[in-house]
């Protein structure tokens, strides 16, 4: 029994490594992505902030910084879905299914590997945001990193679940496009919760949106005076992020273990 567990753990590590190795070959890509994120924050962020006049003592730029980082970790994590779609197209998923590895281990390995990759990918951008924000309490940094990682695991799990359920490049394209367009815009990434509350359907959509939970949770940690502009109490936001990670990791594991068969990609 013990030998089986060790073998399972080794398999899991190998699958995680497989995702991480892909990141290693993308050094230039990461460098360029970091550059244009910095450009976005320094050019678009500072300029759009000059337009905003919302409330006394409200600095839109600080508010925007943590929101835009949330949208970045979301986009990088959801992009794993496109990679899985490419792998299906190229027959790599079939190769993975043929490996002498338990399907649950394979699914968990992909979720963990994809989320660790996404997390490492965005780490330089996180450091840049922290330099700009200059947090009052450095102890919140490890807490925020855990929340960011859990959020990433949830989004990667969601992307894998969607792609492997629909098994179609076209359907993946449209679903991911629509989800991407709506989740970022119907969240507190760019606007405070009281602004969203002026249009109730938008506000309720934002409340159940995981992107809102992470961006508001990061704001509560690093900009505690902005708690009045957030949607839910921090405990609820954190619970939502943990639920997202556990729920979608389980769902991805279920789909790979019980539903997924080779072939049939459209």
């Amino acid at each position: 029994m013990r030998r089986v567990s060790v073998r399972g753990l080794l398999d899991l590590i190998h699958i995680i490594e497989w995702d991480l190795m892909k990141l290693k070959h993308q050094t230039l890509f990461v460098a360029m992505r970091t550059t244009w994120f910095i450009l976005q924050v320094l050019v678009f962020g500072t300029t759009i902030s000059m337009l905003v006049r919302y409330a006394q003592g409200f600095n839109y730029y600080d508010f925007y910084l943590l929101g835009v980082f949330t949208s970045l970790i979301y986009s990088v994590s959801i992009a794993r879905g496109y990679e899985v779609a490419d792998e299906f197209d190229e027959g790599i998923i079939e190769y993975h299914l043929a490996l002498p590895v338990k399907r649950s281990t394979l699914a968990l390995g992909r979720v963990l590997g994809g989320s660790i990759s996404s997390f490492l990918f965005t780490l330089p951008m996180f450091i840049f945001i922290m330099i700009l924000i200059q947090p009052g309490n450095w102890l919140w940094i490890p807490v925020s990193l855990v929340a960011i990682y859990l959020f990433s695991a949830g989004v990667v799990g969601m992307a894998i679940t969607i792609v492997l359920s629909v098994k179609s490049t076209d359907a993946t394209d449209i679903l991911m496009g629509v989800i991407d367009a709506l989740l970022i815009r119907l969240s507190t990434v760019f606007y405070p919760a009281p602004i969203l509350a002026k249009i109730m359907p938008y506000y309720y959509s934002a409340l159940i949106n995981p992107v809102t939970s992470l961006s508001d949770f990061l704001r509560v940690l690093f900009l505690p005076e902005y708690v009045v502009y957030t949607s839910l109490p921090p405990q609820a936001q954190l619970a939502y992020i943990v639920g997202l990670a556990v729920g979608f990791s389980y769902l991805a594991t279920y789909i790979v273990s019980r539903k997924l068969e080779a072939g049939g990609w459209r």
Binding site: D170, I174, G177, V178, D180, A181, R185, L186, F190, Y191
Partner: peptide, 20 residues
């Protein structure tokens, strides 16, 4: 399908981002 996603994004820029 890519086009449909783009249309949603551009319309969302007006009716969600613009409005808020």
């Amino acid at each position: 399908f890519w086009l449909a996603g783009q249309v949603v994004m551009n319309v969302a820029d007006i009716v969600i981002f613009g409005l808020l």
